[in-house]
Amino acid sequence: MKLMFGGLISVVLLGLYLHLIQVAIKVALCVSTDGCTAYPATYFNEGMAQALSIIGGLVSALVIAELAVTRPGEAPMARTLAADLSHWALRAVKIVAVFYVLAWIGAGFAAFYVGLYHPKALPALTTLGQAWLGLAVSSAYAYFGLKPTG
């Protein structure tokens, strides 16, 4: 029950994160396009910027923490499951965990890419994309167990 509740919260946070990034990208692209009025800069308000920052940090922390304790080649969250789970339940959890990580990677890369080409259009998106890049590198190091030499 505890894992299910925690999983539900993390999926809801991921949904909010994806939605906010989608809106931010639409605003950044519209602001950068002459004559576009569908998504003005004011559409992405201060509350959305704060939520994007906070939720982005929470989602990223969850991904990094999970990848840090997952063996390379193993699906995230597989170690937390009971041994007597049905094959379908185990498969469903693995699919959700992999989707979660892939969604985080895709959304973060999109934020980084749009922020790279339109850095002043929406500073909150640019900042998130740049922070995501550093976190993605950290999570890759954690997942593959890479350590600096010397």
Rank of each mutant, 00 (worst) to 15 (best):
A103I: 04
Y100G: 02
A89G: 15
A83S: 14
I105E: 06
I55W: 07
D84Q: 10
I105L: 14
A68Y: 03
G57K: 05
L58R: 12
A103S: 14
A61T: 13
P76Y: 01
V69K: 11
I55L: 12
V93R: 02
I105A: 11
W88E: 15
I105Q: 03
L67T: 06
I55D: 07
E74N: 09
L90V: 00
I55Y: 10
G56T: 03
V63N: 05
T80M: 13
A92K: 14
A51V: 10
R79Q: 14
H87A: 14
V101D: 04
H87N: 06
G73M: 11
P76A: 02
R79C: 01
L102T: 13
P72K: 02
T80I: 08
S60Q: 05
R91M: 11
G57Y: 09
Q50D: 13
T70Q: 08
V63D: 07
K94Y: 00
A61Y: 09
A61I: 00
I54L: 15
Y100T: 00
Q50G: 05
A75Q: 08
V59M: 08
V69T: 11
A65K: 02
A68S: 13
L85C: 08
I105S: 01
D84I: 04
S53R: 13
H87F: 12
G57L: 04
L90W: 11
G57W: 04
M77V: 12
V63L: 10
D84W: 07
A82E: 10
L85F: 11
I64C: 01
L102A: 14
G57M: 05
Q50K: 07
P72L: 02
V59D: 01
T70H: 06
L90K: 12
A51M: 12
M77T: 10
T70C: 10
A75E: 10
R91D: 07
A68I: 06
R91N: 08
V69R: 15
A82I: 02
I54P: 00
M77C: 03
L62R: 13
A65I: 07
R71Q: 13
A68G: 10
A78K: 15
R71N: 08
G57V: 06
V101G: 01
I55E: 05
K94Q: 13
V98S: 03
V93T: 11
V96D: 01
A103D: 03
A51T: 15
V63M: 05
